[in-house]
Design a protein around this nucleic acid. Structure first.
Lengths: 145, 145
DNA sequence: ATTGTTATGATAATCATTATCATTTGACAG
DNA sequence: CTGTCAAATGATAATGATTATCATAACAAT
């Protein structure tokens, strides 16, 4: 935990940003909820427990900054809000998601399943892939009877 | 074109919806811009040329209805708006997208590239796949020098 | 200490989407 | 036909997420 924060701190400094107390509190919330997919509002509520004076705008700005630094990914599952998802450290690809139509759960797939598909796309469509988003919609193992 | 409208009409009737002039005008716009990924506002502007009295709310309602009937898919590329994409007739899967980070173009991949991947996901994660969304972000063939 | 840049918090503004509601349309029964 | 009723529409208000503004605070560098 502390090491990860330290690395994020260095990453910020390398672009001459500071790790202010507000930003650190926000990062901590994200690390503590690594498996969730929190909205900005949800992050705000949780950060307030650590740092009650923080404003919503600061949370939005911090999340935007972290997105820019590729510490988090901003994703959208079709409900009206953006959600923020911590990247795996050192992962060269963005993980995939399983969204359950029954219970709404969002599970993650860390494995890279798209290696072969990406080769095909790069070659056949002459497209230089930088990133991808893959989401499956269906029924999760919990809801299958 | 006329046949496709006719089939959509039947699909509407089968759920006891009507193909009103407003709805027909909207469907025509979508068919005429099959390769684009129009936002609700853009659809509205284009429909107005055919049917100037139409209201924005009706366009939203029609797009919602068509989404429900799976005539179109509602997608989100991360700019603030939802976009509507006509399904290929008879396609059992949703096509994929290539979003160019350079010029913003959105190209489509009609081929189903995920067959094998889906088998793995169904088995290994015990997840019953109903639908998927796959988008690649990168540099399109036009922007590669 | 002084200056200047960056970050913050409160709040107003924006913008897409949804809800409301009075009116219109069109199918159907008598 | 004519009246009835549910569905659809259009204008507009309301909502809700996100962004912009701006005065103030923090803080590094001279």
């Amino acid at each position: 935990m502390e090491q990860r924060i330290d690395r994020i701190k260095k990453q910020l400094h390398s672009q001459s940003y500071k790790l202010t107390p507000q930003r650190e509190a926000t990062v901590r919330v994200l690390l503590e909820h690594e498996d969730d997919h929190l909205s900005a509002e949800e992050v705000y509520m949780l950060v307030k427990e650590k740092y009650p004076e923080i404003g919503l705008a600061t949370v939005y700005r911090t999340l935007e900054l972290l997105t820019e630094l590729k510490v988090v990914d901003k994703i959208n599952f079709g409900d009206g809000v953006s959600r923020y998802d911590l990247r795996q450290e050192g992962a060269d690809h963005f993980h995939h998601h399983l969204v359950c139509l029954e219970c709404g759960a969002v599970d993650e797939i860390q494995e890279d399943l798209l290696g072969d598909v990406e080769k095909v796309v790069e070659k056949r469509w002459n497209f230089e892939i930088k990133d991808h988003r893959l989401t499956f919609h269906g029924i999760c193992y919990r809801c299958r009877t």
